[in-house]
């Protein structure tokens, strides 16, 4: 029962969070300074997601096999290899390093 309540509540908070900006800001043109800040949000938020999902576990910082997988993926993405190839290689590298260590 608790699981269903959690699923329902999380669905509602997620929908509200996603609706917040579109409803509040509406169709207003944002001031040019705000637009400059917004243009920088994608690289900033994505970089933060990459490092936290690779190097943290809850509130703990840690380096494990997945860091090796991400590093190999970084080189492959830089060489512009297709995403699916990159992801599958990273998975194999991570599993390999984990099996050996």
């Amino acid at each position: 029962m608790t699981a269903w309540l959690m699923i329902g509540a999380l669905a509602v908070t997620t929908a509200l969070i996603k609706a917040f900006g579109p409803v509040l800001v509406g169709g207003r043109e944002l001031p040019p300074t705000a637009v400059k800040v917004i243009a920088l949000l994608p690289p900033v938020l994505l970089a933060a997601l990459v490092v936290t999902s690779t190097l943290s576990e809850g509130q703990r910082l840690h380096v494990d096999a997945s860091a090796a997988g991400v590093a190999v993926a970084g080189v492959m993405i830089w060489r512009r290899l297709p995403l699916l190839v990159v992801v599958l290689t990273a998975v194999v590298v991570t599993a390999g390093v984990r099996a050996l260590t």
């Binding site: 609706a19 579109p22 917004i38």
Partner: peptide, 26 residues
């Protein structure tokens, strides 16, 4: 999900329609 607050504010001016429609597009 808190990052979607920032992302939602960023896309808001590019969406169209009334509040309900914008909320759905969001």
């Amino acid at each position: 999900n808190a990052r979607f607050l920032a992302m939602g504010i960023a896309v808001a001016p590019s969406l169209r329609g009334g509040p309900g429609r914008r909320a759905l597009q969001g």
